[in-house]
């Protein structure tokens, strides 16, 4: 089956079995290995992507569901060689250790800031509650998202 969708801003047409999972489509057919698979069951958030702007789990979506949709993966977040504000904040606040959770965590944070541009620390915790990190202990991730929200509001 041919499916057409917008992948990180590029019109994409791909021939694929309709019941392949989106995580497999991205990693194996498109070579985009930023999205990770860990649990394969919705529990860990490592495979988080944005579909029409909303965070979705690519291990729980089928290729055919992407027809006509707009997909953003971690590879599509930087613009013109510059990190997205949230990516930069993760670097600046040391929110990355092994990095396995990072792509999903960053996209979850982008989704949260779209829904709520001025989150409290508690709301940030809730916003990333579907993403598991086994390294950082979350404090630095919460810091990074908090400072990214200030940067996006133009507060320095």
């Amino acid at each position: 089956m041919k499916i057409n969708f917008l992948l990180n801003g590029k019109e994409t047409e791909i021939e694929i079995e309709p019941d392949r999972r989106v995580i497999d489509l991205l990693r194996e057919e498109c070579g985009l290995t930023g999205s990770k698979e860990c649990c394969g069951a919705g529990e860990c958030g490592a495979c988080t992507i944005l579909v029409d702007g909303e965070s979705r789990l690519s291990c729980l979506m089928l290729a055919a569901q992407l027809e006509g949709r707009e997909v953003i993966t971690i590879e599509g977040l930087a613009k013109d060689g510059c990190f997205h504000v949230v990516q930069q904040a993760f670097v600046d606040y040391g929110a990355v250790q092994c990095g396995f959770c990072t792509p999903g965590m960053i996209l979850a944070a982008v989704d949260l800031l779209r829904r709520n541009p001025t989150p409290s620390r508690e709301q940030i915790r809730e916003g990333i509650s579907g993403n598991i990190c086994r390294c950082t202990g979350y404090q630095k991730i919460v810091d990074a998202v908090y400072f990214a929200s200030l940067a996006l509001q133009g507060v320095n």
Binding site: G42, E54, S55, R56, L57, L60, M61, D111, G127, S129
Partner: peptide
């Protein structure tokens, strides 16, 4: 219920 991405789906 679940997490933000679970609630989106």
């Amino acid at each position: 219920l679940g997490s933000p991405p679970v609630r989106h789906s």
